[in-house]
Each structure stands twice: as C-alpha cells, then as structure tokens.
C-alpha cells in the first residue's frame, strides 16, 4: 500500500478529502450500496405496508406466526457481531504493528464470516424443506398470511445480503493470505482498513435486516 499513502498527482493545494483514494473509493461505493439496499428494503416496507396481514414473531406458526427460526438467526447475528469486533481488532493490531494479532484476528473474522454464511445456507435448506419459498407450498400458504410475498422479499433481501457476506469472506481470505505474507505494516495497512469498512457495512445492513425481517 505504499503508493496509497503518497497522494497520487503530487502535492495538493486543496487536498480533497485528505484520505487516500482506496478509502475514499470504498466510502463512495458504500454510498451506492446504501441505495441498492434501500431499493430492496424500501420495496419490502412498501409491499408489507400495502399487504396488511403479515406473519409475526412470538406466536405459533398455526396462528399466523413467522415461519422463520428466530433463535437460530439471533445466534447468527451474534456471529456476525463477533466477526465485526475481530475485524476491528485486527485493524487496531496492525495500527500498532502487531503482526501476530493482525493474523489471528483476520483468521477469526474469516472463520466467523464463513460460519455465518454456512448457517444461512442451513436456514435456507430448512425453510425450503418446510415449503417456505417465493412460491409457497399449499399448506404453508394456508396458514402464513401473504406467504408468497413474504417469501419473495425474505429471500431477495437476505439472499443479497448473504452474497455480500460471501464476497466479503473471499476478499477477507485474500487479505488474510497477504497478511500472513507480511504485506501490511504499521505504516501501510490501507487494505485492512478498506476491507474492514466493507465488512462493518455488511454487518450494519444485517443489524437492520435482522430487526425488520425477523423481529417486526
């Protein structure tokens, strides 16, 4: 990341954001991601508002309860929050030049992130077996209000979030490999910061999704 700190283009009389290109680029990209999830989540809010009846948590499935497994997902949320703290600790470690800490915490982040994806895949398999799909099974459609719409919005929102986590895990593996090769130093660790921003953003989106999809 040597070239990242040396501001390209030479000296700046009016030095823009005073942050290096990759970090600025990531923030700009995240602004775009906010709008993408706004499209998905906004559609969900609007559709649900228009639909009226909806499956709620806290009551049995037969009485119109949600078909989603809240406890499992709460555990999964816990995993993702943990991965966020390991990520930020990895960044804090390399800020102090602590190579061992960086590697350990990055490795932890990869494992936790992969586990999140694994549990989500397990959840999907379980739900599809129970007949909860965009095109709901007949039994489920009878007891779950607006089952098809619920399924449509649920899979699109969590699916795209899951895809973001998966991409994040692959990038994280790449960064971890680089970390083990000693690519980051106390002075140069922009890569860790940039992937961290992405990772925390994905975590942040999940915090919102978990609440509005599972708990409300």
């Amino acid at each position: 990341m040597k070239e990242a700190i040396a501001m390209p283009g030479g000296v700046h009389a009016e030095p823009g954001m005073r942050i290096y290109n990759q970090k600025l680029g990531m923030w700009v990209f995240l602004a775009s991601e906010v709008m993408f999830f706004t499209g998905l989540i906004g559609a969900y809010i609007i559709l649900r508002f228009g639909a009226g009846d909806w499956a709620l948590p806290g009551i049995p499935l037969e009485e119109g309860g949600t078909p989603l497994a809240i406890n499992l997902t709460a555990f999964n949320t816990f995993m993702l929050i943990c991965s966020s703290v390991t990520m930020v600790k990895a960044f804090a470690a390399i800020e102090h030049g602590d190579q061992r800490g960086l590697r350990l915490f990055l490795l932890g982040t990869v494992v936790l992130g992969a586990a999140f994806v694994g549990i989500q895949i397990f959840e999907y398999i379980k739900l599809t077996h129970e007949g909860f799909l965009p095109a709901c099974s007949a039994e489920l459609a009878e007891i779950v209000p607006n089952c098809g719409l619920f399924g449509s919005t649920f899979y699109v929102m969590t699916g795209f979030h899951g895809a973001h986590v998966s991409i994040g895990v692959f990038c994280m593996i790449w960064v971890t490999v680089k970390a083990f090769r000693g690519a980051y130093t106390k002075e140069n660790h922009g890569g860790v910061e940039v992937i961290g921003l992405y990772w925390h953003f994905v975590d942040l989106v999940w915090i919102l999704l978990f609440t509005i999809v599972y708990l409300i």
């Binding site: 501001m7 390209p8 283009g9 030479g10 000296v11 700046h12 009389a13 009016e14 823009g16 954001m17 942050i19 290096y20 290109n21 600025l24 680029g25 700009v28």
Partner: peptide, 11 residues
C-alpha cells in the same frame, strides 16, 4: 474519487 482527490494544485 478522481475529482475529489486528484485535482492539481490550485484547482
């Protein structure tokens, strides 16, 4: 990013 960060001095 380019417009924000890479303007020449004085621009």
């Amino acid at each position: 990013t380019t417009v924000i960060n890479m303007r020449a001095p004085g621009m």
